Simulated scan of single mutants.
Amino acid sequence: MRIAITGSTGLIGTALVRNLRADGHDVVRLVRRRPTAADEVSWDPKGRLDPAALAGCEAVVHLAGAGVADHRWTAAYKQELHDSRVLGTRTLATALAAMDVPPRVLVSGSAIGYYGDTGDRRTDESGPAGSGFLPELCVAWEDAATPAQEAGIRTVLARTGLVVARSGGAWGRLFPLFRLGLGGRLGDGSQYWSFISLRDHIAALRHLLATEELSGPVNLTAPEPVTNREATAVMGRVLRRPTLCTVPAPVLRIALGEFAADVLGSQRIVPRQLLDSGFAFADPRIADAVRAALAS
């Protein structure tokens, strides 16, 4: 199968490209710079993508977007977060809709930030959007895929949780701290974290591409979310390090600004659509996910 991927140099994109090619798929990588390899196609996420450049692609996976936790949320960076997701998704979806022979499926990235703070309430894909910057961003991000849906392309909105990986993402920043014995609770530790191992995330994306009955929002999270306190205990136990350090909520608010509300917020999100469609998790528990990350 010929598959186009945006965000192919990120944590998830790199792993997905490697996984697909290992199985013999032809991968086309959309890049923002001038192409330097035969498998690259240039695009401008803010408005330019030639539909002809994707001719022959049967599937598209859209993962591009500025990192939510990469910078403090200034007004300028919040605009960058918005534009990189909303404009990029709209540009891609519009180009796909204009193709003479469009792909059969678009898997478009989203996030469980859609739900906002759910407290200790188990929430699946039927849950409503929350309030605040991230939920509003996710709503606009998902709406931007509408041109592809209206063109009859099966469109899946992959709402990703916290990816447990050693080499990147939020968890990639935690591993060095815990190895040094500097890991600990964030706030009071009662907030739920909805995680997924990197290898389960890649397998889930492959499942979304292959499962014809899946469309619309799908949560990419493990079946049993854990609290920050529980995740901290598992990290300490697996790495055999103390977890006595804590970061009080006021300190997080000073250090992170507006983003601290999302770090301290609770999201108990469950993957109902994945489970109902027969997806089997390799790492259903947080200890499994942490060990898989260390073994990768």
Results as ranks from 00 to 15, higher is better:
residue 1 M to C: 01
residue 2 R to K: 14
residue 6 T to S: 15
residue 8 S to V: 06
residue 9 T to P: 04
residue 11 L to N: 02
residue 13 G to S: 09
residue 14 T to Q: 13
residue 16 L to T: 10
residue 20 L to G: 02
residue 23 D to F: 03
residue 24 G to A: 10
residue 25 H to I: 05
residue 28 V to T: 08
residue 29 R to D: 06
residue 29 R to A: 04
residue 30 L to D: 09
residue 34 R to K: 13
residue 35 P to L: 02
residue 35 P to E: 01
residue 37 A to G: 09
residue 42 S to Y: 01
residue 43 W to Y: 08
residue 48 R to C: 05
residue 48 R to M: 04
residue 50 D to L: 07
residue 52 A to P: 00
residue 53 A to Q: 05
residue 53 A to M: 01
residue 56 G to T: 06
residue 57 C to V: 06
residue 61 V to H: 00
residue 62 H to R: 05
residue 63 L to I: 11
residue 66 A to D: 13
residue 67 G to H: 08
residue 68 V to A: 10
residue 69 A to N: 04
residue 70 D to E: 09
residue 73 W to F: 09
residue 74 T to I: 01
residue 76 A to W: 00
residue 76 A to H: 00
residue 80 E to R: 08
residue 80 E to D: 14
residue 83 D to C: 05
residue 85 R to D: 11
residue 87 L to M: 13
residue 90 R to E: 14
residue 94 T to K: 02
residue 95 A to G: 09
residue 96 L to Y: 02
residue 97 A to K: 03
residue 99 M to I: 09
residue 99 M to W: 08
residue 100 D to C: 03
residue 101 V to D: 10
residue 101 V to Y: 06
residue 101 V to P: 00
residue 104 R to L: 09
residue 104 R to I: 03
residue 105 V to D: 05
residue 106 L to M: 07
residue 110 S to Y: 07
residue 113 G to N: 13
residue 114 Y to E: 10
residue 116 G to A: 15
residue 116 G to I: 12
residue 117 D to T: 01
residue 119 G to R: 08
residue 119 G to D: 10
residue 120 D to C: 05
residue 122 R to H: 10
residue 124 D to W: 04
residue 128 P to D: 12
residue 130 G to Y: 13
residue 131 S to W: 02
residue 132 G to C: 03
residue 132 G to D: 03
residue 135 P to W: 06
residue 139 V to I: 15
residue 139 V to H: 05
residue 143 D to S: 11
residue 144 A to Y: 12
residue 146 T to N: 12
residue 149 Q to N: 12
residue 149 Q to G: 14
residue 152 G to T: 07
residue 154 R to Q: 04
residue 158 A to N: 10
residue 158 A to T: 14
residue 160 T to L: 13
residue 163 V to S: 02
residue 166 R to F: 10
residue 167 S to F: 00
residue 168 G to S: 11
residue 169 G to E: 02
residue 170 A to L: 11
residue 175 F to K: 13
residue 176 P to A: 11
residue 177 L to D: 04
residue 178 F to A: 05
residue 180 L to V: 04
residue 180 L to S: 11
residue 181 G to L: 11
residue 184 G to Y: 09
residue 186 L to Q: 08
residue 187 G to E: 06
residue 189 G to K: 13
residue 192 Y to A: 05
residue 192 Y to W: 13
residue 194 S to I: 12
residue 196 I to Q: 04
residue 196 I to F: 01
residue 196 I to A: 06
residue 199 R to Q: 12
residue 202 I to F: 03
residue 203 A to H: 03
residue 203 A to N: 11
residue 203 A to V: 05
residue 208 L to G: 13
residue 208 L to N: 12
residue 209 L to V: 09
residue 214 L to S: 03
residue 218 V to K: 07
residue 220 L to S: 01
residue 220 L to E: 02
residue 228 N to V: 08
residue 228 N to H: 13
residue 231 A to W: 02
residue 231 A to Y: 03
residue 232 T to G: 05
residue 241 R to F: 15
residue 244 L to P: 00
residue 246 T to C: 14
residue 246 T to H: 14
residue 246 T to D: 08
residue 251 V to Q: 09
residue 253 R to K: 15
residue 255 A to Q: 10
residue 258 E to A: 04
residue 259 F to V: 00
residue 259 F to S: 00
residue 264 L to A: 08
residue 264 L to V: 07
residue 276 D to Q: 15
residue 277 S to N: 11
residue 278 G to K: 13
residue 280 A to C: 10
residue 280 A to Y: 00
residue 283 D to G: 02
residue 284 P to N: 06
residue 284 P to D: 07
residue 284 P to S: 11
residue 288 D to N: 14
residue 291 R to V: 13
